[in-house]
């Protein structure tokens, strides 16, 4: 298989100045990306996950040519992104979840027109791609609205379309579903799946939402402290840490760790206790049993987050 994206021991080191006392400051190095190597073949759809500050965005910025690596070798479609940023730009699409690449005050249609001319997209191909995006991403009614008036979900769909008008070979998505409602999330995921299977576009996405990964990616890479700690299929990730949800319970008083069937105590902090249970199981019977046996004040359910999965991954490794 041909590797479309290849990283060999890529590093990114930042010099940061930290305050020490009133006037002095200490320089220190932060290794945001610390020797990462991987290949992504044409047509793959890869999830890139990790806690905040793990180095995900830094990697994406190096892959797109925004940031220059401090060490190692990096190629996208045979191009060194840092050296030939604008040549690469014609072959990739980028979507940043938290900031739009569209022109804020221009109507969506004008933004697309600008993209067409900036990327020199032939008229027929532009018309075809735009029509397809408008239909599948449901943009028809939004084309004449300035970007600033769009909701987050609408804007994200608009952004994805803008990134695809020039038929990029690779699409990078940095947190594409962050802040979206359930309906928008489903729409975006469905579109990305079709894009990958029908057009063979290679997709690399970072996310905090495990459901994105479960529904879209056959391969997941986990980065933590700038290092790749997992690279394989989703099953492998599940094996090291099955998704669990957590029941956070506030009792009337401090109690010893409660033991009920189907849940395991994780943490106790004064009258508050954390109980983990399989993500697939219902919380209802647990809540019923707890209320029947213990004096409850409040409770809430926490969905699994990437941080938990990674934490458990380490715990399981340590146990081996």
């Amino acid at each position: 298989m041909e590797a479309l994206i290849r990283l060999e021991r890529v590093e990114k080191v930042f010099q940061v100045r930290r305050k020490a006392g009133r006037l002095r400051s200490v320089r220190s190095e932060v290794r945001a990306v610390d020797g990462i190597s991987f290949d992504i073949a044409r047509g793959e759809m890869v999830g890139y996950i990790g806690p905040n500050g793990a180095g995900k965005s830094t990697t994406i910025k190096m892959l797109t040519g925004i940031l220059v690596p401090s060490g190692g070798r990096l190629r996208v479609a045979g191009i060194d992104p840092a050296r030939e940023r604008t040549r690469l730009a014609r072959r990739i699409g980028v979507v940043f979840g938290q900031r739009t690449t569209l022109w804020w005050d221009l109507p969506l249609r004008d933004s697309y027109e600008l993209v067409r001319r900036m990327y020199r997209i032939p008229d027929d191909r532009y018309a075809r791609n735009l029509a397809r995006c408008v239909e599948l991403l449901d943009l028809g009614a939004l084309l004449d609205a300035p970007v600033r008036q769009l909701s987050l979900g609408q804007r994200m769909r608009g952004d994805i379309a803008a990134a695809l008008l020039h038929d990029p070979e690779v699409l990078y998505l940095d947190e594409p579903t962050i802040g979206l409602d359930v309906v928008s999330k489903a729409k975006v995921r469905g579109f990305l799946r079709d894009l990958n299977t029908e057009r063979g576009t290679t997709v690399l996405l970072t996310t905090h939402d495990l459901t994105d990964i479960e529904q879209l990616c056959t391969r997941v890479m986990v980065i933590d402290h700038g290092r790749l700690v997992h690279d394989g299929d989703l099953g492998g990730l599940h094996a090291v840490g099955d998704s669990e949800r957590t029941l956070v319970v506030d009792f009337e008083r401090e109690l010893p760790p409660v033991r009920i069937a189907g849940a395991r105590p994780v943490k106790v902090e004064g009258p508050r206790q954390w109980l983990a249970f399989p993500a697939s199981a219902s919380a209802a019977p647990l809540v019923a049993e707890l209320t029947a046996r213990y004096p409850l004040v409040d409770l809430s359910v926490r969905e699994p987050v990437i941080e938990d999965v990674i934490a458990r991954m380490y715990a399981d490794r340590a146990a081996l």
């Binding site: 040519g65 940023r85 604008t86 730009a89 014609r90 990739i92 739009t100 022109w103 900036m118």
Partner: peptide, 23 residues
Amino acid sequence: RDGTLDTLLVRPAPVFAQAAADR
């Protein structure tokens, strides 16, 4: 500050021209 400079850097045009012509 708000990171929108990155969005100029992923387009196939000089950043200077994009920043100067914006708005």
